[in-house]
């Protein structure tokens, strides 16, 4: 049974049961506006880094919320904190703080030690 489970978790599905959502919880607690995102993509559209690399703040938001944390930290480092995303966001999400908090959460969490 265990073996079988191992194979399933290797699949494409987001395993919501076992994924680690502690990073998301860490951010929710400190920056409640994280919950307000409606995935409109305004932030990623205006983002300078996003126009040159795969970095997408919107995508990172949803990955963290689903607990798909692999490679998120690598991506987060590319943010320049310029703040255009804050000016664009229709939901008033404090995007820069989320980037900073996410980095902090990853650094504090032993599971993602780099």
């Amino acid at each position: 049974m265990e073996k079988f489970g191992f194979f399933i978790s290797k699949g494409r599905q987001i395993n919501y049961d076992s994924n680690d959502r502690s990073i998301a919880e860490y951010i929710y607690e400190r920056e409640p506006s994280f919950r307000r995102c409606i995935e409109c993509g305004g932030c990623s559209a205006t983002c300078t880094t996003g126009s040159m690399t795969k970095f997408s703040l919107r995508e990172l938001h949803i990955l963290i919320k689903r607990g798909e944390n692999d490679k998120v930290m690598e991506s987060l480092k590319k943010c320049m904190l310029c703040g255009k995303c804050i000016l664009v966001c229709p939901r008033g999400v404090n995007t820069r703080n989320i980037v900073v908090l996410a980095k902090q959460a990853f650094q504090k969490s032993a599971a993602y030690a780099i």
């Binding site: 409109c40 993509g41 305004g42 932030c43 559209a45 205006t46 983002c47 919107r58 664009v88």
Partner: peptide, 30 residues
């Protein structure tokens, strides 16, 4: 196309260039 247009700019021949993320494709679109 699902995405909020973040900003528009203008070319020399007065065309409008918009920036948006095609959120369903997961990539920024110009």
């Amino acid at each position: 196309i699902r995405g909020k247009v973040s900003e528009a700019s203008e070319t020399i021949d007065k065309k409008v260039v918009i920036k948006v993320e095609d959120t369903l494709a997961g990539r920024p679109l110009k």
